[in-house]
Computed example of a mutant assay.
Amino acid sequence: MHSLKKEKPSAAIEAPHPSSTSSARDCVEELLHKQTPIGLFLDIDGTLLDMALTPTTVRVPPGLAELLGVVATRLAGAVAIVTGRPIAEADSLLKPLKFIAAGVHGAEMRTTVTGEVKPLTQAFTPDLLNDIRAAAESMPGIVTENKGTGIAMHYRLAPELRDSLLITLEALVPKYPGQFSIWEGRKVVEILPVGFSKGRALRTLAGLPEFANRIPVMIGDDIADVGAFHAAEELGGYGLKVAGENFSQKEAAFTGPADVLAWLDSLRTVA
């Protein structure tokens, strides 16, 4: 796997800074207008797709894969998916195309579009899985999604169970020290191996040849995307928020997934 060798993009393509009159989105559009190379990192749920009651009931807009394929061609392959879903699920949603990707918040990766998906950590122990399963069974309405290198516990069908779910999972931390961390998302609690995050994933992907000397732009809608926003900014790029349950319309660069897709469609001609 390639490692990140640069702290910032080349000074020759230094990015403009947002100001009181220009937003981060304005700055990215200025770069595109000037034909400045960017690298695009995209979340899926809540960013490319509208949220659904469960992960399996999302609706994929017609032509999404084709659109992303055109954008990837325009950006010379510098498009990556950075998602909480397993990469296999991302592939299914975006078929027939495949992209460079980080799945399960970076706990698995594919560093070339034709490469294999590689888990970067061991699966959870049977004892921990049993305790998590027991927690879910004690709270009807919780939908548990085993991602292999992580587990998501969705409470969108029973939002009143959020606090109880967190308390139950936090009680497991001292029983399994150093094995997992707890992350909140949009009506979901993610149980992930310690040390993995979308921020770490973006830093790794930004070091790949496809993203060399390009300004990184991360687009996401969730609290879990904040680390990736910060990573992109620290590398001289931008984090663009999508409005929804976590980010207000005022602070966001996009009003929702439809706005993101319309913006991506505009890259057909300006990128």
Rank of each mutant, 00 (worst) to 15 (best):
G185C: 00
L165Y: 01
A232C: 05
G103L: 04
A11S: 13
S181V: 15
K187W: 10
R85T: 01
L172I: 01
I219T: 05
G69A: 04
M139R: 15
L267T: 00
S10I: 01
L165W: 00
E184C: 08
A102H: 08
A252D: 03
A90I: 06
I44Y: 07
I223N: 09
G256Y: 01
A11C: 10
V82W: 11
I167Y: 10
A212L: 10
A262E: 14
I191V: 09
T47S: 09
T269W: 10
Q35A: 11
V194I: 11
A11T: 11
I223C: 11
L169T: 12
A224N: 12
T269I: 07
S138K: 15
V270N: 14
D259I: 06
R156F: 07
K187D: 14
S10G: 12
P37A: 04
M109Y: 04
G237R: 05
E160Y: 11
A243M: 03
L49A: 00
I219E: 01
G103W: 02
V242S: 11
H33L: 14
M153V: 06
T21F: 07
P9T: 08
A252I: 04
P126G: 04
A271K: 06
G39D: 00
E7F: 13
S138T: 12
K118M: 13
A101D: 05
K95S: 15
I167Q: 14
A224P: 09
N213P: 03
H105T: 06
E234N: 04
S22E: 13
V173Q: 11
D50Y: 12
P159K: 04
L53C: 08
S19C: 06
M109K: 03
T144E: 11
A52S: 09
G220N: 02
E137I: 10
E184H: 05
F247I: 05
K8Q: 07
A262G: 12
L4I: 10
S10W: 09
L166R: 09
I215D: 07
V113L: 13
V188E: 03
F124I: 06
A65R: 03
P174A: 00
A201W: 03
K250Y: 10
V189L: 08
D50L: 06
G227E: 10
A52I: 01
A253G: 11
P119G: 04
K118D: 15
F124A: 02
T168Q: 05
G244W: 03
L31F: 03
T36G: 07
D43R: 06
S10P: 05
E145L: 08
M153W: 00
E89Y: 12
A102E: 02
I13V: 06
A201D: 03
G115F: 05
K147Q: 07
A243Q: 01
N213G: 00
K118I: 15
R74M: 03
M218N: 08
H17F: 13
A24E: 04
L192E: 10
K147S: 15
A90T: 02
D91N: 07
I87Y: 08
A158H: 13
L192W: 09
D45V: 04
E233F: 11
E184V: 05
I100M: 08
L261G: 07
L48P: 04
P177K: 00
G103N: 05
T112K: 12
L120C: 11
F229K: 13
E14D: 03
S22G: 09
A171G: 06
K6L: 14
